[in-house]
Structures are given as C-alpha cells and as structure tokens.
C-alpha cells in the first residue's frame, strides 16, 4: 500500500511502485481530470502539481510520492487559480478542452511565482504544453488578463 496526499486528502493505493501516477489517479482513484496525451512527458496533458511544482504524471512513478503533496486541477485552489480560471472562461480559451487542465495548472504556477510575466516568460513556462486545437493565443491573452487583475501580488 502506498499512501498519497491528493488534493488535501489522504488516499491509499495498492499499486506497483513503478506505475506512473497518471494511471493511479485515473484508473485506481477515478480522478479523470488528469489526462493522457503521450505517456512520454512530451505534451503536458497529464500535468499535476507536486509540492506546488508542475510535474508530468505520466513520467512520475507512484512509489516516489509518499509524503509529497499532489494537486490535480480539481484541487487547484487559491486566489491566483481563481483568477486564471476566470480569465480562461472569460476569453473562451478551450476548444476540445483536452489539454486545458494542464495549461491552467502551468499558468497558475507561473503567475504564483511571477505575477507580471512577459511573453517570453509565458513561452518558457508553457512551451511544453501542446494544444492541437491551437488555443495558444487565447492562453497567452488569458494569462495577461489574470496578471492584470493580480495587481502584482501573487
């Protein structure tokens, strides 16, 4: 049994330690909001936060996670996250939506650390998050919109 802290709740799972967290979340715990896009750390669809840092769940063996704080889009809370999600909805960012949880998580972490990101900062933080629907312009605009409402304080 591996004991995990997911979105503030303690969950016990019976999984082999090399099983990627992605499949523990999806198939063992029914937490479907974390999505499979490539399984090789190449797309960002499976992004979760590990102790507040964005991480690819498809590349993260569950055995290494005891005692770490795991946050999925479902547990993403706080003022910055709220502003990011509101900006996303206001600008109608999503198309198919499949990549968006990962994008929102990455954008939230960016703004928590850097409340006034430049376009280059956004490129750095989000370049590994593919969107086949091509919502990049709106993602960028939504990050700037959320930043403008942050008033500089994370």
């Amino acid at each position: 049994m591996i004991s995990l802290m997911i979105n503030g709740e303690r969950r016990k799972v019976d999984a082999s330690p090399d099983m990627p967290l992605l499949w523990v979340l999806r198939d063992q715990l029914g937490l479907n909001f974390t999505r499979y896009g490539c399984g090789q750390g190449l797309c960002g669809a499976c992004t979760i936060l590990l102790d507040g840092e964005p991480v690819r769940a498809c590349m993260t063996p569950v055995g290494e996670l005891a005692g770490r704080r795991i946050t999925t889009i479902h547990g993403l809370e706080g003022g910055v996250a709220k502003l990011v999600k509101a900006a996303w909805v206001e600008l109608d960012v999503p198309q198919c939506g499949y990549c968006q949880a990962g994008q929102v998580l990455a954008a939230t972490v960016l703004l928590r650390k850097n409340p006034k990101p430049s376009d280059a900062d956004i490129d750095d933080a989000l370049d590994g998050h593919l969107c086949r629907c091509g919502t990049y312009r709106r993602i960028r605009a939504a990050i700037h919109l959320a930043a403008s409402r942050l008033g500089g304080a994370p």
Binding site: R26, G30, N32, F33, I73, V89, V93, P94, G97, A101
Partner: peptide, 27 residues
C-alpha cells in the same frame, strides 16, 4: 455569445471516452 463549455473544460470536468467507468470494466 459565450462558449457553452468553457467552464467545464477549464476545470477539467468535461467527460471524454476514456473517463467512462462501468462495473467490471476492463481496459
């Protein structure tokens, strides 16, 4: 006119094929 699905897709709650669970489901 706003998209009807922005909120669900922003929060990750939209349901795709791989999300369906049924009793006894195998993969």
């Amino acid at each position: 006119v706003k998209r009807s699905d922005s909120k669900a897709k922003t929060e990750g709650t939209a349901v795709y094929g791989g999300d369906i669970r049924l009793p006894g489901l195998v993969t």
